[in-house]
Design a protein around this nucleic acid. Structure first.
Lengths: 115, 115
DNA sequence: TGAATATATTTCGAAGACGTATATGCTCGC
DNA sequence: GCGAGCATATACGTCTTCGAAATATATTCA
C-alpha cells in the first residue's frame, strides 16, 4: 500500500480526530471550522475517506452509540495515525515555507550551490 | 473551471517555477530538492500537470530553446499563478498549524464555544 | 398537521489528479 | 555499438474526491 496519499480532505479529517474521537457528522462540522469555513466535506467523501483511513490503520472505531435512534460511530486516531498526521503536517509546512520564500523573490538556498 | 485543485505535485511545480522560469526536466530536479529528496516527480505527472496549469492560466510558456538538438520549453508563473500559489501556501500553513496544535493536545479555540 | 430543516450514515456514478509505462531522439562514456 | 542521462510526449489505469440521492428520525415553524 506504500503509504496512502493524504489529500486535503483526508488530512483535515485526521486533524479533526486528533482533538478527540468524533463521529462522522461531527467531523464534517469540525473541518468546516478548522478551515475557516472554506472546506465543506461532502458526505460521500467523508465516509469513503473514513473507510480508507480505517483500512490503513490510521484511525479506528472507538465506539458506537445510538442517540435518539440515530447511529453514531465514533472514530479515533491510532498511534500510527498520529505519527502520520504529524509527519504530514511537517511536510505541509515545509512546502508552504518553500513557496513563501520563493515568492518573496529570494532564493537563499544553502548547500548545493545556486542553480 | 471553479479553480483547479492543487495537489502536492502541482503545488511544488508552481513553487519550483516561482524562483525563475524553468523547463520541465529542471522542474523535476528542483522539486526533488525542495522536498528534501522526498518527492520525485514522474515525467508523466509533470507534463500533464504543466498542461493543466497552463490551461488554467497559472503558468505560461516563456520561451523555447534548442540545446544540443534537445528542445527545452521554459515555463514561468503568471500573475494569477503567483496569487494562487501564495494563497495556497497560506492554506497549507493554516492546515499544518491546525494539525500541530491539535496534536499538541490543547484545543484553545476562541469563538464558538468549545464542543 | 404538515413542511422544512438538522442529524447521521450509506451507496454509487462521474470527474479528475496522479502514477506507470512506453516511445522518441540526441549526446556522452565505455 | 550499447547503455545511461537528458528532454518531451502520450496512452492507460487507478485511486481520491465530488456530487447527488436514498434512508430514517427528531425538531422547528407556520
Amino acid at each position: 500500500m506504500a503509504e496512502l496519499p493524504l489529500g486535503e480532505p483526508a488530512f483535515l479529517i485526521l486533524t479533526a480526530l486528533a482533538a478527540e474521537p468524533k463521529h462522522g457528522y461531527a467531523v464534517i462540522e469540525d473541518v468546516r471550522e478548522i478551515s475557516g469555513g472554506q472546506v465543506r466535506l461532502h458526505a460521500g467523501t467523508l465516509y469513503s475517506v473514513l473507510d480508507r483511513l480505517r483500512t490503513s490503520g490510521l484511525i479506528e472505531v472507538e465506539r458506537e452509540e445510538i442517540v435518539q435512534s440515530r447511529l453514531r460511530r465514533y472514530y479515533r486516531l491510532t498511534g500510527a495515525g498520529q505519527q502520520r498526521l504529524s509527519g504530514e503536517a511537517l511536510r505541509l509546512r515545509r512546502n508552504a515555507d518553500a513557496a513563501a520564500s520563493r515568492l518573496a523573490g529570494f532564493t537563499p538556498r544553502p548547500g548545493t550551490g545556486l542553480a
